[in-house]
Amino acid sequence: MKIKKTIPNPVSNETSELWKEFFKRLLYIGLCIIIICLFANNNDAFRLVPLPFLFIALYQIIAIIKVCEYLINEYFPLKTPSNKIAKPLDKFFHYFALTIFFSGLLGLIFEIRNFDRTINGAVFFRNTCFIGIGIGIAFAVLLKILSPSVYDENNRRYTVISGFILGFFLLTPSVSSFVNHTLADEQRVCKNFTITETRITKKRSKEYFVYLDMEDHRNERFSVNKNKTFYKGEQIELCILKGRLGYDYVVEFNKMTK
Rank of each mutant, 00 (worst) to 15 (best):
I109M: 09
N254I: 06
F93K: 05
R218F: 06
P50L: 10
D213I: 03
K91I: 10
Y158N: 03
T182F: 15
V123D: 14
F110A: 11
L171S: 04
P173N: 02
F93C: 10
N43Y: 14
L98H: 10
R204E: 12
R47S: 11
K203Q: 07
S82P: 00
Y75C: 02
A184G: 05
I72P: 06
G243W: 05
G121C: 12
L105F: 15
N225Y: 04
R244H: 12
Q60R: 12
G243C: 03
R188V: 15
R47D: 08
C32R: 02
A138K: 01
K203Y: 00
N83K: 05
V160K: 03
V11E: 14
Y95I: 10
C37W: 09
C37F: 14
L71E: 10
G107H: 03
T196N: 13
A122H: 12
I61P: 00
I7V: 15
L170W: 05
V141N: 00
Y247C: 00
N41D: 13
T257I: 08
R47G: 07
N43A: 13
F130W: 11
R188I: 14
V179T: 05
T15Y: 09
A138Y: 04
E69I: 12
V11N: 12
V123N: 12
I7P: 02
H94W: 12
R221F: 07
A122I: 11
F55M: 05
L27M: 13
